[in-house]
Design a protein around this nucleic acid. Structure first.
Length: 307
DNA sequence: GACAAACTCGGACCCCAGCG
DNA sequence: CGCTGGGGTCCGAGTTTGTC
């Protein structure tokens, strides 16, 4: 058994066709087919159900696929790590981030990292926390920058907190609320809210402020750019990280809102960003360097390129 | 039902690295 | 240098599927 056979099996599983799998591996279909057969012969069992058009993996095939993913990824990591031990000028870095840190911290860090190490291919997976967690466990990502509250009770993960980033309430320019001299939380609840998915604790706080049993935003959207567009065209009030809407505030397209009786401990999205990695797993040199860059930018608040 | 297209598989053959 | 084995290509046969 060798890694090539396992790569072919993964390609077959992905493309569900011997022809397309062979194409993806840049070999002819008979060679591809024979390689799968050899693997089956070596393991003494069928790995693919050829009677079905979809070519699903057999139960044995599923087990082999599970190990194949880890072995192929492990081999890739090994090459990466050895290459990067010599010098940080080759190999790949795979990491992930949630929507909130994507607003400025992560792009700034990637820009600084890629300028310093142009030979390293950076692959960034932007996803929700569940999928990021799964990718971390499968060793597809070195680390992720995400909301730590989703990972804090899981011993699988190591959490390195980043600076607190409080969210702000905002509205469009010319919003009726802007004509008032002072705003209270009653004004906040007079308009629908557009927010990212709010943590239960925040919803609870908003519910108690509004006097409702449960609080739910009118629009929930993880894409901050979309959220801003929605707020700019309506009388809705939005919540977002200040960094993400800074340009709109500077251009006068959006206005930040302060409510005089708003509790100072209201937890808004983005406040608990952290670097999440696997416990007991040594990071590749490129990953360590990217984390150092992230922490540096997080502390100074500006990108070395810009600031 | 006939036909064409797509797919999988096996046989024949070639190339190349490793070994004695 | 010749043998051997692994992995590749080319070609054709058999099967399945979709279309008319």
């Amino acid at each position: 058994m060798d890694l090539k056979q396992l790569r072919y099996l993964l390609a077959l599983n992905e493309h569900r066709s011997f022809v397309r799998g062979a194409d993806a591996m840049n070999i002819t279909q008979p060679a591809f087919s024979r390689s799968i057969q050899n693997l089956e012969q070596e393991l003494g069992c069928q790995l693919v159900d050829r009677r079905q058009k979809e070519l699903p993996p057999t139960p044995e095939g599923q087990v082999v696929l599970q190990h194949a993913r880890l072995l192929v990824q492990g081999a890739r990591n090994l090459v990466n790590e050895v290459t990067q031990l010599k010098r940080l000028d080759a190999g790949e870095l795979h990491f992930g981030c949630g929507p909130a840190p994507l607003q400025s911290l992560v792009p700034d860090a990637v820009a600084a990292f890629s300028t310093a190490h142009p030979g390293i291919l950076v692959r960034l997976q932007v996803d929700n926390w569940e999928r990021l967690g799964r990718s971390l466990i499968r060793e597809e990502l070195e680390f992720a920058v995400a909301d730590s509250r989703h990972f804090s009770n899981d011993p699988t993960f190591n959490i390195q907190p980043l600076k607190r980033r409080d969210g702000v309430f905002f509205c469009r320019a010319g919003h009726p609320l802007l004509s008032k001299e002072s705003l209270s939380t009653n004004d906040l609840f007079a308009y629908p809210l557009a927010t990212p998915l709010l943590p239960p604790a925040t919803r609870k706080q908003l519910a108690s402020l509004s006097g409702l049993v449960d609080f739910s935003s009118t629009v929930q959207c993880e894409d901050q750019a979309a959220l801003v567009r929605i707020v700019r065209q309506t009388d809705m009030l939005g919540i977002a990280g200040e960094e993400g809407i800074r340009e709109h505030l500077q251009q006068g397209l959006l206005q930040a809102l302060t409510f005089r009786n708003m509790p100072s401990n209201l937890e808004t999205r983005g406040a608990h960003c952290a670097i999440i990695s696997r416990n007991g797993y040594r990071l590749a040199p490129a990953a360590q360097e990217m984390i150092t860059t992230l922490l540096r930018i997080d502390q100074t608040g500006t990108s070395p390129l810009i600031g």
